[in-house]
Design a protein around this nucleic acid. Sequence first.
DNA 1: TCGTTGAGTCAACGACTGTTGAGCGAAATG
DNA 2: CATTTCGCTCAACAGTCGTTGACTCAACGA
Lengths: 183, 183
Amino acid sequence: MSELSRAERRQRTERRILDTARELFAQRGFERTTIRAVAQAAEVDPALVMQYYGSKQRLFDAAVRVAEPPAGEAGPEELIEELLGSLDVKLGELPPASLAMMRSMLTHPEAAASARGVLGRQIERVGRSLPGERARLRAALMTMIMLGVAVGHQLLELDELRDVPPEDIARLLRPCLQALSEG
Amino acid sequence: MSELSRAERRQRTERRILDTARELFAQRGFERTTIRAVAQAAEVDPALVMQYYGSKQRLFDAAVRVAEPPAGEAGPEELIEELLGSLDVKLGELPPASLAMMRSMLTHPEAAASARGVLGRQIERVGRSLPGERARLRAALMTMIMLGVAVGHQLLELDELRDVPPEDIARLLRPCLQALSEG
DNA sequence: TCGTTGAGTCAACGACTGTTGAGCGAAATG
DNA sequence: CATTTCGCTCAACAGTCGTTGACTCAACGA
C-alpha cells in the first residue's frame, strides 16, 4: 500500500505526536494533558512519546516553541498594526503553539517563564521605538492590552467577543494603542 | 490556656483552612494545589479538609467566592474610575479570592465558567451605561484591557509593571478607556 | 460523675500519573 | 537468505492524588 521508507514513517510519527500534543496542550493546559492522552490521540504507545521527547516537560517545550517577529526596527504606527495583526486579533486565531503557551502561563512555572520571555522581548521591541517618557511602561501596557483581548477572545471565549470580525476589534482598539503610543 | 469554646475552635479551624486554601489556589492554581498541601499549611489533617468542604472542588468554590460591585447605575466616567480602581490597579493588589479565580481560569473548566460569569456581568454593567453603538463590544474590550493588565501585573509579575505606582498605570490607561467609552 | 457528642487523627484504598526496560516484528543491509 | 537495525509495543514500577471509614479523646450536658 503506502510506499514509505522507515525514516519517513519515523519522522511522520514524531511530527504527528508533536502536533497532537500542541493541540491538547493548547486546549487543556499542561497539567490536564497526559502523555497517555497524547499517545492515544496520536494512535501510538505512551512509551514512544517518552522515547522521542524524553519527558513531558521536553514535549511541552517542543510544542510551545514559537516563531518571533523579525528584529527589524519599525515606526510606532507600523508597530501598532503589527500588534493588532500578529498577536491575535486580525487573523481570528493564534498559532497553536502560542495558544498552548498562553493556556498554561498562569499555572505552569516553565510556561510562565517562557511567556515572560516572549512578552518581555516584545515590550522591549515596542518600547524602543516609542517616543516620549516611560516608553517601556507604555509598551508594556500596550502589550498587556493585546494579551487581555487575546485571552478573552481565544482562551475564555467570551460571548461578547465571539463572531466579531477581527477588523472591528482592531478598529476599536487602534485609538487605545495610539493614546499610549503618543505621550 | 486558651479559653475557647468548642464551637469557636471549630469555626476558627474551618476559616483557617479556607484562608490557607485561598492563598495556595491563588499562587499555584487548582491542579497544583493539593488537599494535603492545604492541610499541612493549615496544620490540620487532610481528612478534616474533606470533612468540612466535601471535595476539593467545593473547597475551591468556597475559596473563589468573590464580592461583586453593587448593582447601581453609574455614568461612564464613574465606571472608568471604578474599573481602574476595583478590578486591579489602584490598590496594587487584588483580593486573594479574585487572584485564585484568575489563576485557574485558563486551565480549570469550573474556574473558567466562574470567570465568564463575573466578567460577563461586569461587561453588561459597563455596556448598559455606555452611549453609542456596539456598547457591549466596547465594554468587553474595556474589561479585557483591565484583565490583561491585571494578569501581567499580578499573575505574570512582569518586571516592566513591578514597582510602578498604581496611579501611574491608571493615568496612562485612562485615555485608552475613554477612547472606548466614547464612540 | 458518667455517658454522649463531635472535633480531629490515622491508616488505607483505588485510581491515575510519568517513566522505564525488556521484548517483538518488520524493514534495511550484506 | 541470514543478520542486524530500530520503530514500536507491552507490562510494570514507584509515586502522588482525592477520598473514606474507623478510631481517639477532650469538651459538653444532665
